[in-house]
Simulated assay, not measured.
Amino acid sequence: MTYCVALKLNAGLVFASDSRTNAGVDQIACFKKMRSFVNADDRVIVILSSGNLSITQNAINLLEQHGRHAERRNIWNAETMFDVAQLLGESLREVRKHDSVFLAQSNVDSGANFIVGGQIKGEDMRLFMVYAEGNFIEAGEETPFFQIGETKYGKPIIDRVITPETPLSDAVKCVLVSFDSTMRSNLSVGLPIDLACYTASSLQLGFQQHITQDDPYFSQISRRWSDGLKGVFASLPNPEWLTDIDINSDSSE
């Protein structure tokens, strides 16, 4: 399992992915699940992946391979991010068509999902989620983020905090809390975390961070978020309908 999240804000884009891959309790390894394609002053494209590792790696490698052929539409000459999402979906279909039959013979799931976002000169930033079948949807004002992989534990904080107006610094904090919550509840998601931020209209991939176990900022965020939750919980009032009940008494007496 994995966890990836991307946010589309007025100020820019935030991407994050974990690095844990497991095929059983004794087969845990780390693989990078973020790939960027940058041609400064022309385009910045970031792809996050989850699902069958061989499928996702081969699909992105195929997308990259097609980019070496200037005579065909590819990730380097695509005119819009919609075209990029379409190209990624086509690569995913091609790999799954070739490999899924053989994987199925061993009862191996060939499912895979991507988040792809960025900006190409001449259009606004855009963010897409590409499904295993190769089709995709685009993030909008009402839902300015996408998650793939183990999404449920990290979603509540994003739902409560993130809006299109959220500053990039707050968005980064929110994403890290989302990862901390996920890792506490699911051992199949773990460090290192790859984090990247893109400032709107810059056409440069500015901030990138590889967050490991000994990262002091992430450790601080994790500790203070945990302490803060405990403090808020302790400050909540008891239910009024328990005021006349001795909750410490033994009901069997």
Rank of each mutant, 00 (worst) to 15 (best):
I148N: 09
T199I: 13
I245G: 01
P216F: 08
V175G: 06
V175P: 08
I120D: 09
D227H: 08
V177R: 12
A104V: 00
C174S: 12
A196I: 03
L63F: 05
G228S: 14
G228F: 12
R160D: 11
S106T: 00
V130P: 04
T56F: 02
S178T: 11
V44M: 04
N135L: 14
V177T: 10
M183R: 11
G122L: 10
I158N: 04
S19R: 07
F146V: 07
I245V: 14
F179P: 10
L103F: 13
L103C: 00
E165F: 00
S235A: 15
M125K: 03
I148W: 06
R224E: 14
C30D: 12
V116L: 03
E71W: 06
L92R: 03
D227T: 02
R73T: 15
D109L: 09
S50I: 10
S219A: 13
T182L: 10
T151S: 14
G12N: 00
S54A: 09
A23V: 11
K32L: 04
L48R: 01
E133S: 13
D194L: 01
A85E: 01
D26W: 00
S252G: 08
N248A: 14
F15W: 04
A16R: 04
I211D: 07
S222K: 11
S185A: 15
L236R: 15
S54T: 05
A40K: 11
D244Q: 13
A234V: 12
R35Q: 10
I162N: 02
N58M: 02
E142S: 12
F207S: 13
E90S: 13
D159F: 10
E253K: 08
N61K: 05
Q147F: 15
Y198A: 07
E79H: 02
L92K: 09
V101R: 01
T56G: 08
L88W: 07
E141A: 11
Q209W: 11
I193W: 03
F15H: 01
N77M: 04
E64T: 12
C197V: 15
R68N: 14
G24I: 03
S181E: 14
V14A: 07
H210S: 05
A200T: 13
L48F: 04
L187R: 13
A112Y: 00
Q213K: 14
A132N: 02
T199L: 02
S17W: 01
T182R: 09
A16L: 09
V161C: 07
V116M: 11
Y153Q: 08
F207C: 00
C4K: 03
M183L: 05
G140D: 15
A104S: 10
V130S: 01
V95P: 01
S235P: 09
T21R: 02
F146A: 10
F128E: 03
A171D: 06
Q209C: 08
